[in-house]
Design a protein around this nucleic acid. Sequence first.
DNA 1: CTGGAACATTGATGCCCGTCAATCTGTTCC
DNA 2: GGAACAGATTGACGGGCATCAATGTTCCAG
Lengths: 108, 108
Amino acid sequence: MKTMTTCCEPVLGGALSEAEAEDLAAAFKVLADPARLRLLSLIAAADAEEMCACDLIEPVGRSQPTVSHHLSVLTDAGLLTRERRGKWAWYRVVPERLANLRDALAPA
Amino acid sequence: MKTMTTCCEPVLGGALSEAEAEDLAAAFKVLADPARLRLLSLIAAADAEEMCACDLIEPVGRSQPTVSHHLSVLTDAGLLTRERRGKWAWYRVVPERLANLRDALAPA
DNA sequence: CTGGAACATTGATGCCCGTCAATCTGTTCC
DNA sequence: GGAACAGATTGACGGGCATCAATGTTCCAG
């Protein structure tokens, strides 16, 4: 499981190579799932700016393993951070990473 | 094949409903493919701001039907416009649509 | 140390989709 | 009209992935 850090060339910044296109496509693929988008929006909207995984299962309407899987995908993509406190896992969004992807869609 | 027009609720603008999340996920799914990103970047980088499909097949390195398929997906998603002139098809990027998706990643 | 709770991991299943070969449609030119 | 070309469509194949049940792991409570 590799963590994604620096990424990506902008779409409108000149013709993308196949490798650059694959990197950027992989980044958008993480966002291309309704369950993951709901998790992101739920955590971002939390008062404490963080949420326990236990409080995400019911509102997102999926099984516990599925939610855990998506949270891992988001974390590996650098969009979330995970912090274990006792037997609970707390998640926070990483707005810089979101801005990073946003910039990939910016005008030249 | 439905054309996508108005879309989407921002990720950081409060908890997304399942329907809103599906719409936004569908929009990002279009961008989550290296061939489509390369097509977008190639057309955006063209001097005339438009490109003939015939000139996109070789640089993107896929078969003619595959390129035609991706161009249709991008067009249906509102990211490209198609104009047939004689036996050729000319494509242009729709920057407003790109900005639209960009806004979906904007801070609250 | 034993039971239970919270998450993560594994394995299996079904669906979506990127890809290409073959074919079809429409256009140009002679 | 007929040949040749550009592009779209169809059908088939294969890989990737979202999902869940079952199981594993880690931590706390008593």
